[in-house]
Design a binder for these strands. Structure first.
Lengths: 214, 214
DNA sequence: TTGCTCATTGGTCGCACACTCAATAGCATC
DNA sequence: GATGCTATTGAGTGTGCGACCAATGAGCAA
């Protein structure tokens, strides 16, 4: 009787195998943390030998950076689609905050917290964090700019407004591993929304009541 | 000729040795990070054998938590002295922001970032972080409360205002390990001050121009 | 001076990690 | 069906970690 683990070799194209490895590493990064991305851990995840991971990523640090970039990039696309359909900027922003306020976003908060700390020791990851940070800020800025042009938002500096909102979001994200998660008063949990409404010249409540259709 | 390392035993009282160990660990935590607190590293720092550290801290995790508590507690005392002399709350707050805005505060930002991430895996540290977080919030709240009673500040909820300011400070602290540290626009770097002036009903500029005497 | 206590040492164990490389075998191609 | 390329394995190296413990000796008390 064959055991559940693969003892037969499965040979894949380098591109496919590499993508598979990055995907597995990204999943581990999201659920367990970037420091859990080890040769053994990822190899076990895919049913291959650790040496194979080394073959595709001679330095583990590169895989860690790649995994972070993959996870953060995917989340950004889900959060702020590059191609916004016909929904208004206000609706998109409301959707953004609905998602970032939910418990499902905790994994993303943990990932950013994780990556920002680990950047201290890993230059490759640090660079990748900078890339993703710029991507998030620019995507957010584009949304704000559209809103301004449509007359929905009012701000002199869309990028500055975007950064300020994201900084507040990061500040809350710092608390994600605390023992008393969720114990903070509602006013604290709503800080990102409050900040957005203030910086974008929106009446209070605009971003929490306007539920988008999609 | 005696080498520079101690080969002669020096026997100290448990209390003194323990304090020495915690101090060394706190120093390492501030300069290199909490994950650099290892038996070997701290022992070398003190010129003793690793076994001795184990003797005082059978589980390294306890030393890590203790080191964080020591470092964060000391910094809080320096930042917001429990016993404020005759300086006004505004002066103390201005001093607080002057210090937290300086580059010297980066190590503290790194420490909090480090601790908040590591809390994910280390329950003992998580508890200690919660204790320090409460201490920082309460100390800040006390300052705000005093300011309100003296008519300098205006807020309905001193603790809420304190938390909001600290959250923004944390948000900026997240960026401490970024490649482009300091590249952000002034308006971003001044977010904590701006937040404080807004939440405490102060005219803009109050906290950056009022230089305290001490 | 003697004896005792316990702070301190020195050595060891097991584990997990990244990284290396010659040998092997899947699979496309002819 | 044979051949060649290379993806994949298996086995190994060296490092650093926490934890453990019997032996030692510093310094105090009698």
């Amino acid at each position: 009787m064959p055991s559940s683990v693969q003892n037969k070799r499965i040979r894949k194209s380098p591109a496919a195998r590499r993508a598979e490895i990055v995907a597995a590493a990204a999943a581990v990064a999201l659920t367990e943390g970037l420091e859990c991305i080890t040769l053994r851990r990822i190899a076990e995840e895919l049913g291959v030998r650790p040496g194979l991971i080394s073959h595709y990523f001679p330095a583990v640090e590169d895989l860690v950076a790649e995994a972070f970039g993959d996870a953060a990039g995917s989340e950004l696309d889900a959060l702020l689609p590059a191609d916004r359909g016909d929904a208004t900027p206000i609706q998109h922003l409301a959707r953004f905050f609905a998602r970032t306020s939910g418990e499902a976003y905790d994994d993303i908060s943990r990932l950013w917290l994780n990556a920002r700390h680990l950047s201290r020791y890993r230059p490759t990851l640090r660079d990748r964090v900078a890339v993703q940070e710029a991507a998030w800020r620019n995507r957010f800025e584009a949304l704000v700019r559209d809103g301004v042009e449509l007359g929905e938002f009012r701000t002199a500096d869309p990028l500055l407004a975007a950064i300020q909102i994201l900084v507040v979001l990061d500040g809350l994200g710092m608390l994600v591993n605390s023992v008393d998660t969720g114990d903070d008063p509602p006013a604290v949990r709503h800080m990102p929304v409050t900040t957005a409404e203030r910086e974008l010249g929106l009446p209070p409540g605009t971003l929490t009541t306007a539920a988008p259709s999609n």
